[in-house]
Amino acid sequence: MSQPLIRVAALGKSYRTAAAPFPALRGVDLSIDAGEFVAIMGHSGSGKSTFMNLLGCLDTASSGDYFLAGRKVADLDQEQLAALRNQTIGFVFQGFNLLQRMSLEDNVALPLVYAGRGLAREQRRQSARQELARVGLASYASSLPSRISGGQQQRVAIARALVNSPQLLLADEPTGNLDSHTSEEIMKLFSQLNGEGITIVLVTHEPDIAAWARRQVCFLDGLIVSDVATPPRALA
């Protein structure tokens, strides 16, 4: 009856290299239900980012299947993939990836431009300011990204990922560039969002960060080696 939000089966990804093709993922099977909060861990080079890029429809798998909300991603055309990235998925990068010459509100409003809902510029900014308020940055709406701290930039990036109300939030080492205090704030934000029903999959190296999630999946050499539930942690 209720199908998982994400289901991958025997997912493989090989990178073309100068020598032989390099298999970064070697047959991954995983299901994630709507509303889950999953942390993906593993050594450097174990294939976490590769996996996240496939989940985010930024890259295409070499083999195996990926079903997102019941749709087989391999069968979708460029336009449908763009719509998925725009509407269904919010992606948060380690390096924030804000457009430097735009104000924060315009950065956050950008996915609305591509949503094709015909919103006027002011309506888009209005929504963007709401999202910024949600991540606690309402007063910075018209600043430029270069004028705020890394932690704040990451919160802007999260606001941008949320502006189209996606079901799924993917984050590849969102706290990788942040100090532990700021990381904690970001994780609080993720917990809160998960509490509001958004499915979250995040990659991290740090057990402290992973402890915020309710399920920990560990990668090694392109395969999943462990998949355990973690007890809910009381919000500090």
Binding site: Q78, N86, Q87
Partner: peptide
């Protein structure tokens, strides 16, 4: 190029 990548990641279509 990077900007184009970011735009695509948040849902820009090729025609955009």
């Amino acid at each position: 190029t990077r900007e184009i990548g970011i735009r695509m990641a948040i849902g820009a279509r090729q025609k955009d």
